[in-house]
Simulated scan of single mutants.
Amino acid sequence: MNIEAYKNQIIKKLLDVQDENLLAEIEAILDLNPIVIQTIDGKSLTKSEYIEHIGSISESIADGAEIPTSE
């Protein structure tokens, strides 16, 4: 199969996708920024968003925010 036929086959499948999360994952892959984790409320985070999220948590802790424990 040549590359154009392969692309067209993928495009046809993509047109049938109804899952917004799956579309977000595909877009992230195409942008070379893959989704690496989902938050507890189901939001997908790309690698750069996750790094930013962790940075904001670190800043909050440095500013005196309470750290959740298992107790």
Rank of each mutant, 00 (worst) to 15 (best):
E49Q: 13
L32S: 11
D31G: 05
A24R: 14
S44C: 03
L22R: 13
L32R: 13
K13C: 12
E52A: 15
E25P: 11
L32F: 14
Y50A: 10
I57V: 08
H53E: 05
P68L: 03
S44N: 04
A24F: 12
I67Y: 00
S60F: 07
E49S: 12
T39W: 07
K43W: 08
L15T: 13
L32K: 07
I10V: 14
G64A: 12
Q18H: 08
E66L: 11
I11K: 10
D19M: 04
E66F: 12
A62D: 01
T69D: 11
S58E: 06
S44Q: 10
K47F: 06
Q38K: 15
P68S: 05
S56E: 09
E25D: 13
A65R: 01
Y50H: 03
A24E: 02
L32V: 05
K12R: 15
I11T: 12
I37T: 10
S48T: 08
D63I: 06
D31Y: 03
S56P: 01
E25S: 13
I61L: 03
S48E: 06
Q38M: 10
G55C: 04
T39S: 08
D19H: 06
D19Y: 02
E52K: 15
L14A: 08
L23T: 02
N33E: 04
I29E: 04
Q38F: 11
E66D: 15
T69E: 12
V36E: 01
I57F: 01
Y50S: 03
I10T: 14
I29V: 15
N21E: 04
A24N: 05
E25K: 05
S48W: 00
L30F: 02
S58T: 04
P68F: 01
S58R: 06
L23H: 11
K47Q: 07
I61H: 00
I35K: 06
L22V: 08
S48M: 00
L32T: 09
D19W: 04
D16S: 10
S44E: 03
D16H: 05
A62K: 14
I37N: 03
E59G: 06
A62F: 08
K43V: 10
D41R: 10
G64V: 08
V17D: 11
I35E: 02
P68Q: 01
D41T: 14
I10H: 07
K47V: 07
K13G: 09
G42Y: 10
D41N: 11
E52L: 11
V36R: 10
S48H: 00
Y50G: 13
I57A: 00
I61S: 01
A28F: 04
L14Q: 06
L45F: 09
H53T: 02
I40K: 15
D41L: 13
N33W: 04
I51F: 09
E49D: 11
L23E: 04
E59I: 07
I37L: 04
I37C: 05
I29H: 11
L14M: 15
N21K: 10
I35C: 01
E49P: 01
I51C: 07
L45Y: 06
T39H: 05
I51D: 15
V36P: 12
E59V: 13
T69H: 07
S44P: 14
D31C: 09
N21S: 14
Y50T: 09
E52S: 14
G42A: 13
Q18C: 06
D31Q: 14
D63V: 05
V17Q: 09
G55F: 14
